[in-house]
Measured scan of single mutants.
Amino acid sequence: CSVCSEPIMPEPGRDETVRVVALDKNFHMKCYKCEDCGKPLSIEADDNGCFPLDGHVLCRKCHTARA
């Protein structure tokens, strides 16, 4: 995971895991958050999703503030 540096592995008792890929980086679902404010990001293409800027994973509000 690009945030916590832990491997993305299935939880005990499970055969599969879910990971998020954004900007060629891999994330646990729980680690997929705005780099500035820490708001959890949605994997859907909506207002709560990722608004990347200069290689950073940001929420819409933080993207607008940086732009």
Score class of each variant (00 low, 15 high):
His63Val: 05
Lys61Ile: 13
Asn26Ala: 13
Val20Ser: 05
Thr17Glu: 15
Cys50Thr: 06
Lys33Gln: 10
Phe27Tyr: 10
His63Pro: 02
Asp24Lys: 11
Asp15Gly: 10
Lys25Asp: 02
Cys37Glu: 02
Cys62His: 07
Lys25Val: 02
Leu53Cys: 07
Cys59Asn: 01
Pro40Phe: 09
Gly38Trp: 07
Cys31Val: 00
Ser42Phe: 01
His63Trp: 06
Pro10Val: 15
Cys50Ile: 10
Tyr32Thr: 02
Phe27Pro: 02
Ile8Cys: 03
Cys50His: 09
Val20Gly: 03
Asn26Leu: 08
Ile8Phe: 03
Asp15Thr: 04
Met29Glu: 12
Val21Lys: 15
Ser5Tyr: 07
Val57Ala: 14
Gly49Thr: 11
Phe27Cys: 03
Pro10Phe: 13
Asp36Gln: 09
Cys37Asp: 00
Ala22Lys: 15
Arg60Tyr: 10
Gly13Cys: 03
Gly55Gln: 05
Met29Arg: 15
Phe51Arg: 09
Gly38Met: 13
Pro40Thr: 11
Glu35His: 05
Tyr32Ser: 02
Gly55Thr: 08
Ala65Tyr: 13
Cys34Trp: 00
Asn48Trp: 04
Phe51Asp: 14
Met29Phe: 07
Cys1Lys: 04
Lys30Phe: 03
Ala45Pro: 13
Tyr32Arg: 03
Leu23Thr: 10
Glu11Ala: 08
Lys61Glu: 15
Met29Trp: 08
Leu58Pro: 02
Ala67Leu: 01
Lys30Tyr: 08
Arg14Pro: 09
Asn26Ile: 14
Ala22Met: 11
Pro12Glu: 15
Ser2Gly: 13
Gly55Leu: 04
Leu41Glu: 02
Ala45Gly: 15
Asp24Asn: 13
Asp24Gly: 10
Glu35Ser: 06
Thr17Trp: 08
Lys39Glu: 11
Lys33Cys: 15
Cys4Asp: 00
Leu41Thr: 01
Cys37Gly: 02
Ser2Tyr: 06
Tyr32Leu: 11
Leu53Val: 14
Tyr32Met: 04
Pro40Leu: 11
Pro12Ser: 15
Pro40Arg: 10
Ala45Arg: 13
Phe51Trp: 12
Val3Gly: 03
Val57Asn: 06
Glu6Pro: 00
Asp36His: 05
Gly49Trp: 03
Ala65Gly: 14
Phe51Leu: 09
Cys4Thr: 01
Pro10Thr: 15
Gly13Ala: 06
Cys34Leu: 01
Arg19Tyr: 10
Ala65Ile: 05
Asp54Cys: 05
Lys30Trp: 05
Asn48Ile: 07
Gly13Pro: 06
Met9Ser: 08
Ala22Leu: 07
Gly55Asp: 15
Lys39Met: 10
His56Tyr: 06
Ser2Thr: 12
Ala45Glu: 09
Pro7Asn: 12
Gly13Lys: 08
Pro52Asn: 06
Cys1Arg: 01
Gly38Arg: 11
Lys30Leu: 06
Lys61Gln: 10
Arg14Ile: 09
Ala67Gly: 04
Gly38Leu: 07
Arg19Val: 03
Asp36Met: 05
Pro7Val: 15
Ile8Asp: 00
Leu58Val: 07
Lys33Asn: 15
Lys61Leu: 07
Arg60Leu: 07
Ser42Thr: 09
Cys34Ser: 01
Pro10Lys: 13
Glu16Ser: 07
Glu11Met: 09
Cys37Tyr: 01
His56Ile: 05
Asn26Thr: 13
Arg66Met: 13
Cys50Met: 09
His63Glu: 07
Cys37Trp: 00
Gly38Asn: 15
Ala67Thr: 05
Glu11Pro: 06
Cys50Asn: 14
Val20Met: 10
Gly55Tyr: 03
Pro40Trp: 04
Asn48Cys: 05
Pro10Asn: 13
Pro10Tyr: 12
Ala65Asp: 14
Arg19Phe: 05
Cys1Met: 00
Ala22His: 06
Cys31Leu: 00
Glu35Asp: 06
Arg14Thr: 05
Arg66Trp: 08
Phe27Trp: 02
Ser5Lys: 12
Arg66Ser: 13
Glu16Asp: 06
Asp36Leu: 05
Ser42Ile: 02
Val20Ala: 07
Cys1Gln: 02
Ser2Arg: 05
Glu16His: 02
Leu23Lys: 13
Arg66Thr: 13
Arg60Lys: 13
Leu53Asn: 11
Asp24Arg: 06
Leu23Ile: 03
Met29Lys: 14
Asp47Gly: 13
Gly13Gln: 05
Lys30Pro: 04
Val18Thr: 15
Ala45Cys: 13
Phe51Ile: 08
Ser2Leu: 01
Glu11His: 01
Val20Lys: 08
Cys1Trp: 00
Gly55Glu: 10
Asp46Glu: 03
Asp15Ile: 08
Val57Asp: 02
Leu53Asp: 06
Val21Arg: 14
Met9Ala: 08
His56Lys: 14
Ala45Ser: 14
Cys59Phe: 00
Ile43Cys: 14
Lys25Trp: 01
Gly38His: 07
Lys25Gln: 05
